[in-house]
Design a protein around this nucleic acid. Sequence first.
DNA 1: CTGAAAGCGCTAACAA
DNA 2: TTGTTAGCGCTTTCAG
Lengths: 334, 334
Amino acid sequence: MQVTIREVAKAVGVSPSTVSRALTPGGTVSAATRDRVLAAADRLGYQPNRAARGLITGRTGAVGLIVPDLLNPFFAEACKGAQARARGLGHSLIVSDAERDEGLEMDAIRTLAPEVDGIVLTASQLSAEELGSLRGLTAKPVVLLHRREPGFPSVTADLAEGMTDALTHLHALGHRRIAYVGGPRSTWEARERAAGVEAMAQTGTIDLVRVGSVAPHFDGGITGAADVVLASGATAVVAFNDIVAFGLISRFTARGVRVPDDMSVVGCDDIALSGMAAPPLTTVSVPKAHAARAAVDLLFRTLRTPEVEGEEPLQRVLPTHLVVRGSTAALAAH
Amino acid sequence: MQVTIREVAKAVGVSPSTVSRALTPGGTVSAATRDRVLAAADRLGYQPNRAARGLITGRTGAVGLIVPDLLNPFFAEACKGAQARARGLGHSLIVSDAERDEGLEMDAIRTLAPEVDGIVLTASQLSAEELGSLRGLTAKPVVLLHRREPGFPSVTADLAEGMTDALTHLHALGHRRIAYVGGPRSTWEARERAAGVEAMAQTGTIDLVRVGSVAPHFDGGITGAADVVLASGATAVVAFNDIVAFGLISRFTARGVRVPDDMSVVGCDDIALSGMAAPPLTTVSVPKAHAARAAVDLLFRTLRTPEVEGEEPLQRVLPTHLVVRGSTAALAAH
DNA sequence: CTGAAAGCGCTAACAA
DNA sequence: TTGTTAGCGCTTTCAG
């Protein structure tokens, strides 16, 4: 069997409650006793029983992470970051892949809630109302990652700024007619990125070609979008994210259009593969792991100091930055 | 507060233990009582308390997954598969990223063990001895994924066969001098893949150029390996995995060597991006999600019917298959 | 500062 | 088939 506090107590010659106090951060024990208890616990290989502790404290020692799709390296990296930070804070991380489905996302929240101390909800597809309904569904704190919504603590990246930077970069290279291939219309992320693009278009410095939206994975109609870009006469294109950018480049290459010679391409996210592609992708870098760690930190902050009714929770916005690599080039003179 | 079995019991007019029995799969209750209990539980919104249940049963309701690196899409996909299957079986999945470090992997096992009912250990870097020492370290069952070792249940892919297929494909295209860029020398996976390559070399049908090993991520010295391949006079190259293949192609492109016109490249794993790259990558497809699900299934099987001393546990080997895409072509006549 | 006692929510003997 | 009883390992009052 496993070593319990009773055995540690017996070894030291104190009561179980004293051992418990010595092991608890805020316990009122004399330094001497604490030392002896700690030494004995260590020697006997004592490991606290999470279930027993959780039964009393109500804490599970785990945090939940819900992502739309682990296959997307963007979320895999978020998972890695969240996992590392959670473990660093003495908690384990339970992942749940919502498969980009609102229903499954709700299910995931429902099943996860009782098993964790709090949830990091990544790139949630839920409507503002559904999100609001969460308060009644579970008392467990929820932190939004890559989604901002009033009433919720959140960590996001400044995507609008990133998109503006991308267009500015293209403009500086001489491009004027620039296409934007957007992401799934309904998502917060897509709206946020589109906002940055539109802001730039408003200035009149560029001639924006809006190419509708595609699903952010390979079979999301990217081929068709690429053809539309080609037909539009644009000399550069900004994609919703790196994956879409890769799809675009693939189609361009197949059609004999060279990147960056004939067409400049900018992605977004800066997933690991972007630097290794041929050509390496110019992209808007998002601090994926950092954001995930920040979300976990924010969750723990909420755990320690519960939210105050009526007070707007903290919303962190992390900066993005453009990484110029080989998929963009100066507009060739014609 | 939360709804307990006592309130359900009171509502139905039975004892708490009857409620417990009605809720337990093997419980001996009359169908009528079970129905009434279930109805009441549902109506009151009863949710079993995992901690309380776990305190008695010793079960945590979670399974652990340890991977070398979530950034590698290969493992992200394994995580996705394992997560889905675990949840389907009513368990949650706790992930732990070992950062390709033996020490961290051991730590991960140690910290994970008490929090889960069993562990899926993916592509373990541990030596056979260290693996063996696990039996003493924890009584929790461990299933190996993408690693085979006597005494452990495991799920692996037939990598050797896959590599042989890749070389056969290249041979059929007319290539004779073929390079192999291996992975981290010490790992089981690298040895397994190398075995397939060497088996083919033994037949004498091809002229194998062994280019040493690189770390399976972008900055793993791939550039140097690519140059060695170029200098060797090989007309085709098989890479340890898709990521290495991408790195190779990137370097080839930078040096003006066209793929597949001047050089054919075959990867391994078939990560999602492979089909979307330019050119799309010919690769040995490994059933990543399937293998992960199988590993979770095997873990549950072990949980239900504990391993018998002296009896060799089940080792499943899943088939791989070559996916021919655009990065390989017939050897040009010279 | 420390010990005794109670009990978190649930399951598992053991009776009935 | 059901109820009673005990207790999993731990924290937390409450006394001392």
